[in-house]
Design a protein around this nucleic acid. Structure first.
Lengths: 247, 247
DNA sequence: GGCGGCTGCAGTGTATACAAATATCAGTCC
DNA sequence: GGACTGATATTTGTATACACTGCAGCCGCC
C-alpha cells in the first residue's frame, strides 16, 4: 500500500479501463471509465465513490482521483458532499424533467441541422447503429442496449457538426442514464424500438418537420415511460429497506 | 509562506473575492472570481494563469487552485496544456459560431417557455436590469455593460425555470464573452441597446413567436458585429506566419 | 556568424503527509 | 432498555515535497 507505480491498474481486474495510448491525461481515463459505467447502468445512483478506494482500483493516488471527481461533479454526474465524499448523482424529479426538456430543445435543433446536410454515408452509419441496437435487444443485453441508444442520439449530434451542442448533449444523455436508472418502472424497455428507425427515415427523406416531431415525441415517450412523480425514490428507498430489516 | 491558515485570504488585497460566509468550498470562490473577471472583460483570452501565482493571489496552495482550474477547463473557459499550464481560452471561429448557434437554440426555447408563465414582477425585474444597462452605457462603462448584458440573458433563463438549460446558458454566455473579446471590431457596442427592450415588450405581450424571433435575431446581430472570418486570429496566426516562412 | 546541443531554471504532475471533519462504537447514565 | 457522550477510526481537505517536462539562455561547434 506504500508506493504504487503506474501501470499496475490493469492488473487489478478493472475491466472498464480502455488503455488509450499514453497521450491522454490520466484523470481522463478515470472520468471516461466512470462515465462508461454510468452509461451502461453498472453504477447506480447514490453509490458512494470513496477516494482511496478508487485510487486502489485505478492505481493512482487520491490527487488524480480528486481531479476526476471534481470534473464529474462539474457535469452533475456525481455530487460532492463536503467532508462526506462523492456519490453518484440522484437527479430529482424536477431535474429529470429539466433534462428531458433540455434534450428536446437541443436534439430537435440538432436533427433539423442534420437534415439540411446529411450524407448517405452518415445515414448508413446511423442504420448500422440501429442494427446493433436490434442485436442487443434480441440478445436481451439491456446494458448494451441502453448504451447504444445513448450513442445513437449522440451520433446524430456529432453528425450535425456543432461541437458545443454535442458536448452539452453528451452531458444530458449521461444524466438521462441516471434518471432512467432511478425512475424506470420494472423492466420496461426504455426506448421504443421503432422510433429510431422512423427518425432516420425522416432524416433520409429530408423532412425536417417530421424529423423534429419524431425526435421530440420519442424523447417524450421515454420520459413518459418513467415514474416521474414527486416523491423521493431511491436512497430513502434503501433506507426504508434497512428499517424493515431492523425491525 | 510556511503554514497558512484559512481566512487570511482576504488580507492580500484580492478585491474580486466576494467573501461569502464560509459555507462555500474555497475553490468555488476562485472559480467565481475568474468567471467574473471573464464576464467583465478584465481577463483577455490567452492570458496565462500560473498556479503558483494564483495561489499567492488567493492565499491558498496550488492544490485548491488546481481544482478551480480543472473545473474551468471542463467548462471550456480555460484550456489546460499539459506541462505548460492554464490559459484563458481562445475560441476558434468555428467554436464561436457554434456557441452563438447553441445560444440561439437554447435562448429561443427559454424565451418561449417564459412567455407562457411570465409574471408582472418578473417583467419589472427585467426592465430594471435594462435600466441599469442604460446607465452603464450612458456612463461609458463598457465592462459593466457587457456584464449586465450577459446577466440579462441569464435572468431570462432563470425565470424560465429550467435549471439545466440555465446552467448551460451560463457557460455559453461566458464563452461568448471570450469570443467578443477576441473578435470584436474596434469599440463597436456589442449589444444593440433597443433589442433587449423590444424583447421584454414581446414577452409582456405574450407573443411567443415575436419573442423568439427577436431573441434569435438579436443574437444574430451580436454575432454579425464580430469579425468571424475564417482566418486564424491571434496565436495561431503567428504559427501560420512561420509556416509560410518555412516554405 | 549562425546553428545545434546542453545545462539550469521555472513550472506543472503526482504522491504523500498532516489537519480537520465526520461516522462508528463502546460505555455510562438516566 | 434506550439515549447520550466520549474516544476512536475512517475519510476528506489542504499543504507540501519531489519528479518530470518544457523553455531559455549559454556555450561550443561547424
Amino acid at each position: 500500500m506504500a508506493t504504487r507505480k503506474r501501470g499496475e491498474a490493469g492488473d487489478k481486474g478493472t475491466a472498464a479501463i480502455l488503455p488509450r495510448r499514453g497521450k491522454k491525461v490520466s484523470s481522463d481515463q478515470i472520468v471516461e471509465s466512470i462515465l462508461s459505467a454510468v452509461a451502461e447502468h453498472r453504477l447506480p445512483p447514490g453509490t458512494k465513490l470513496g477516494e482511496e478506494h478508487l485510487g486502489e482500483i485505478f492505481g493512482v493516488s487520491r490527487t488524480v482521483i480528486r481531479q476526476a471527481l471534481v470534473r464529474l461533479a462539474n457535469d452533475r454526474i456525481i455530487t460532492l458532499e463536503p467532508n462526506r465524499g462523492a456519490f453518484v448523482a440522484q437527479p430529482t424529479v424536477q431535474e429529470a424533467r429539466d433534462v428531458f426538456e433540455a434534450r428536446r430543445v437541443i436534439e430537435s435543433a440538432v436533427v433539423a441541422r442534420l437534415v439540411k446536410a446529411v450524407e448517405p454515408a452518415q445515414l448508413a452509419e446511423l442504420r448500422r447503429l440501429i442494427e446493433r441496437e436490434d442485436e442487443a435487444r434480441a440478445a436481451g443485453d439491456r446494458r448494451a442496449l441502453v448504451k447504444l441508444s445513448g450513442e445513437f442520439h449522440l451520433l446524430i449530434a456529432e453528425m450535425a457538426g456543432n461541437g458545443t451542442l454535442t458536448a452539452m448533449l453528451r452531458e444530458l444523455v449521461l444524466r438521462s442514464s441516471l434518471v432512467i436508472m432511478l425512475y424506470e418502472i420494472g423492466n420496461r424497455p426504455a426506448c421504443p424500438p421503432t422510433e429510431h428507425r422512423e427518425l432516420v427515415d425522416a432524416i433520409a427523406a429530408r423532412d425536417a418537420t417530421a424529423a423534429c416531431r419524431i425526435m421530440s415525441e420519442h424523447l417524450g415517450h421515454v420520459e413518459e415511460s418513467l415514474n416521474l412523480i414527486d416523491e423521493e425514490p431511491a436512497l430513502p428507498d434503501l433506507r426504508s429497506v434497512f428499517v424493515e430489516l431492523a425491525r
